[in-house]
């Protein structure tokens, strides 16, 4: 593959998925600046290994690279510190600003509190549970695709998802789930 072809393919396949890569990296790293470094490294790897992509769905393939890059990167650069409040938490929870206009201020506030609690609860999940939740609910991957991304059997995906959901339900106020 010539460099020009490779670049064109990269721009067609990988660049449109930058935000997806960022969602996953941010939730794995727990903060934006580490996530950006991870995404950059993962994208360079994607570019380099582009001819190994053998068809099928590109998104799970790319997310597997992001996930593996994150694992290596975090092992190398992060001590085992636990980040309970991700620094991107309030930043891009979709379109909160408008809620106040359509709901009562109290309802909007409650909703915002709940969103905050949810984000903190997800951030507090152990890594292996957090990644399956993000792959399932943010990336909308199937069990099979998640299994490929995390390189584990489907049964493991199912049991981790189930456990993660139970942990989240326990962490959130009773009426909300």
């Amino acid at each position: 593959m010539s460099e020009t072809d490779r670049r064109t393919r990269f721009e067609q396949l990988a660049v449109p998925l930058l935000d997806d890569a960022m969602h996953l990296a941010a939730w794995l790293a727990g903060n934006r600046s580490d996530a950006e470094d991870i995404v950059q490294e993962a994208m360079l790897r994607t570019y380099k290994y582009l001819d190994r992509f053998s068809g099928g769905a590109f998104r799970p393939w790319l997310l597997a690279i992001v996930r593996n890059t994150a694992m290596t990167w975090l092992k190398r650069n992060r001590s085992s510190k636990v980040v309970l409040v991700p620094d991107f938490e309030s930043e891009e929870a979709p379109a909160m600003a408008d809620d106040a206009q359509v709901e009562s201020p109290e309802a909007a506030l409650l909703q915002r509190d709940l969103a905050g609690e949810l984000n903190r609860a997800v951030a507090a999940l152990p890594d292996e549970f957090r990644e399956v939740i993000v792959l399932r609910e943010l990336q909308d991957l199937s069990y099979k695709e998640i299994a490929a991304v995390i390189d584990a059997p489907i049964g493991t995906v199912m049991s981790r998802l189930s456990r993660a959901r139970r942990l989240l339900m326990d962490a959130l106020p009773e009426h909300s789930t």
Partner: peptide
């Protein structure tokens, strides 16, 4: 699921 899909932060590039 509804809560996760609407309120989980999606930091963009």
């Amino acid at each position: 699921r509804a809560l996760l899909r609407t309120d989980l932060a999606r930091p963009t590039a």
